[in-house]
Simulated scan of single mutants.
Amino acid sequence: MNTGQALYAPPVAGVPSPTAPPVFDNVPGYEGTVIGGGGFLPPPAPLYPSPPPETEPSQPDWSIPSITEDTAREAFRKYVDSKCCYSSGPVDDGVITSMEAFNTYRYRLETFTEFRSTEWANKPYDGQPVNAYTQQPPGPWDIQVQPPTMFKDNTEDVQVPYTSSVKGCHTCFATGKCQCSECTGSGHKACWVCSGSGVRAGDESCTRCNGTGRESCSECHGQGTIECETCKGKKQLLVYINLKVEWKNNVEDFAVQQTGGFDSANLGSVTGKKLFEDTKYMVYPVLGFPDPNVSQASERLVREHQSKFSQTSRIHQQRQTIELIPITKVSYKWKGGSHLYFVYGNEFKVSADDYPATCCCILM
């Protein structure tokens, strides 16, 4: 018997055994990679050599952006207007006593990676060409897949060439039909009008079911079977190795904690003044930044990313940026009390945890 021929020619009609789609572990180049539905595929050698150390470009402007009292007050007003339970008294009558700006640097490292895995897949057989063993399939990393825009997550499934074969559907025993779950295969259900008794109030015969207590199942139209969801009634499946390609932008931030008491967790929702950007296949840590915390974070994260992701994925590109997030601490007095709020980010967002004029709203 020619087993190779049987893998790429449609089988003789018959009823197969009720097993899952066949898992062949002898496809050339894929031995051991698809057993259990998901094989780990180590990436090939890097596409490009690692870059040499570099000196940073000329020093940019590290000055702290300042805001005016009018800007601070207008941001405060918009914040209060967005709160249904906040009175505008502190905005209208509060007196600003001081404004203090803080250097808050955010370092961000992005590593754009490609991860590949394989698994056996199937779909209804509709006459597609089958070609398992006609020639050796290309290796998982030899298959050309167009990457998406850099630093954008995406996923793509690719049918590996020369791995497809035809098998009888394992779900319906190659019949194209499965038992209807609505009526458990009987083709009938209890009449919903008489609840299966055959009579209505007053011992009258039920006109809906003619006194039988049963009616035809609407799901299967009285047949007791429905079209198989797996093969869509085709009886056969095209079985093949599926290559799953996942592109992911792995992002990590580090914020220098010079915020004057402001909760730095809020910084994730705002942008800042971009001081530095570097995009390469593999970036080198930032050198000579005025705040040594930023340089130390850059060195640590670059080392961790290149070590962690190069073991499981192909690194396509890295990008590192440094932003100066403007944070202004505004102190003001209202009704004899001292209070404060923060204005932060290019968006002039406001944080005011101790707002002194709140009330309780009752929603009806």
Rank of each mutant, 00 (worst) to 15 (best):
K78Y: 13
G268W: 04
L287K: 06
C209V: 09
F342Y: 15
W247H: 06
S264A: 07
A45T: 08
E323Q: 07
F102T: 00
A174K: 12
A352V: 02
G36K: 15
Y48C: 12
D253H: 13
Y341K: 10
H305R: 09
P65M: 05
P10W: 02
P53M: 01
E323K: 06
D61S: 00
G4E: 07
G261T: 05
C194Y: 13
I362V: 11
S351H: 07
S88N: 10
K349D: 00
L109R: 01
P42Y: 03
S264L: 07
G187C: 04
G288M: 08
K248E: 11
D61N: 05
G222D: 10
S307G: 09
G272K: 02
E156V: 13
S195C: 08
L301F: 08
V166C: 14
T3R: 15
I64P: 07
G94C: 03
T149Y: 09
C360N: 13
Q128D: 15
P44Q: 01
D25N: 15
Y355C: 03
R73F: 00
C85A: 14
T358Y: 01
P46F: 03
P292C: 07
I325Q: 07
K152G: 10
F289C: 05
E304Q: 13
P11N: 10
L363Q: 14
F40T: 14
W62A: 04
S197Q: 03
A13Q: 09
Q257K: 06
E100R: 15
Q236H: 12
I35P: 12
P138L: 14
H339Y: 12
P60I: 00
L109H: 00
G29K: 02
G36Y: 11
E215G: 11
T104N: 02
E252G: 04
Q159T: 13
A45H: 13
G187R: 05
